Simulated scan of single mutants.
Amino acid sequence: MRTLAFIALAGAVLGSPVPALAQAAPSDAAPLPRREGLSMEMPTLSEDAALQAAVASTSRPEADRARDGERHPFETLTFWGLQPGLTVVEIEPGRAGWWRNILEPYAAATGGRYVPVNRPTEGMGVADGSADMVVVARAFHNWSRDGRVEPYLAAFFQALKPGGVLAVEQHRAAEGLNVTETAPNGYVPESWVIHAARRAGFELEARSELNANPKDDRDHPFGVWSLKPTRTSERDGRALTPDERTALDAIGESDRMTLRFRKPYAAD
């Protein structure tokens, strides 16, 4: 039986309490688990036929399905722990609804519930302590710029049941940089996201390089939006040359962290 495998690292809350959220991870923060070294086996595609069908469905836009090779939807959702019958809240699914076009029909087919939420502090669409999973894709760079990270994470924590999962996919900046400098380009350091979630009460359970892209050096004329799928090619009087456009397209989509946090089972 063919098995999909990728690198994932189990993370535990270690030792000292998490310090106050800062723009860069403070030096006395609990150490992060190493990325390399632990292989985590994934189930074969046939082990969740409903998810396989949702991903392969021709009802998904063709442009969505064309991105599967770079976004790895089946593997990513399996890494996050998606199962039949769960209540899944997606934060800011966007007009295109890339994840929604998989999660919503999957929930309908398996007796689960899909809840899209655009303004978490105004309501999470579920009763407190009832959500099984909260999905956040490519949003922390926006929230970091206007003070939304802490209140949003608090809302996620309140909505999740004990043992519930916070699933994160996010454009990843190089470590050691200040988020105020990287976020306008669409990237944030992985350690910054981890420490923000820990401060909100979450435990880092695993991190994966499934959506890593070493070709992305993060140095692009129009930030992450220079890359696929947005492919911004002109702004503020600056236009890419054909060679620049070709080089950026060759990179593919961004380098991304893929994280799984859990609300502690003993959480009130």
Rank of each mutant, 00 (worst) to 15 (best):
L153T: 06
D146I: 00
H141R: 01
S144T: 06
F140E: 02
V165C: 08
R198H: 15
K161V: 12
L204G: 12
A174F: 01
D219L: 13
V179M: 00
P162R: 13
W192M: 05
W143F: 11
D217V: 13
H171Q: 02
A174V: 13
A173K: 06
V179S: 11
L210R: 03
R198E: 15
W143E: 03
W143D: 05
Y187G: 08
R148T: 03
E181S: 01
A154S: 14
E169I: 05
H141K: 02
R172E: 08
E209H: 12
A137F: 01
A155I: 11
D216V: 07
V165W: 03
A167S: 02
H171T: 06
L166Y: 03
R199W: 04
L204S: 14
H171N: 08
N211L: 12
D217E: 13
F157K: 08
A196F: 07
A137S: 07
L204F: 13
E169W: 09
N142E: 00
D217H: 13
P151W: 07
T180Y: 03
G201T: 14
S208K: 12
A154C: 14
D216T: 08
F202E: 02
A206N: 11
G163Y: 11
T182S: 07
H195M: 13
L177W: 04
R138P: 04
E190D: 13
V135G: 05
L153N: 03
V193W: 03
Y152H: 01
F157P: 07
G186T: 01
W192R: 00
E209G: 14
E175N: 15
A183H: 04
N211C: 08
P162I: 14
P189R: 05
H171V: 01
A155S: 15
E175G: 14
Q170C: 09
W143V: 08
G163I: 12
L166E: 07
Y152A: 06
V188K: 00
H195G: 11
A167P: 00
R198F: 12
P189A: 00
E169N: 07
L160M: 09
G201Y: 10
A159K: 02
D216M: 10
F157Y: 15
A155F: 05
R138Y: 04
T182C: 04
R145K: 10
Y187W: 07
G186A: 05
D217F: 10
K215V: 08
M133S: 02
V149K: 04
G163T: 15
A206V: 05
R145H: 04
H195A: 06
P189S: 01
L160I: 09
E205Q: 15
K215F: 12
I194P: 11
D217Y: 13
Y152F: 06
V136P: 08
R218M: 12
G164P: 11
G186Q: 10
T182H: 09
F156Q: 02
P151E: 05
V136D: 04
R207E: 14
T182F: 06
H141C: 05
A212G: 15
N211T: 07
A200N: 09
A155P: 09
V165S: 01
Y187T: 00
V193K: 03
M133T: 02
L153I: 05
A196W: 03
T180I: 11
E175L: 15
H171D: 09
Y187A: 00
A155C: 12
G176Q: 08
K215H: 10
V165Q: 01
R207S: 14
D146N: 13
E203Q: 14
P184F: 10
H220T: 10
L210S: 09
V134C: 00
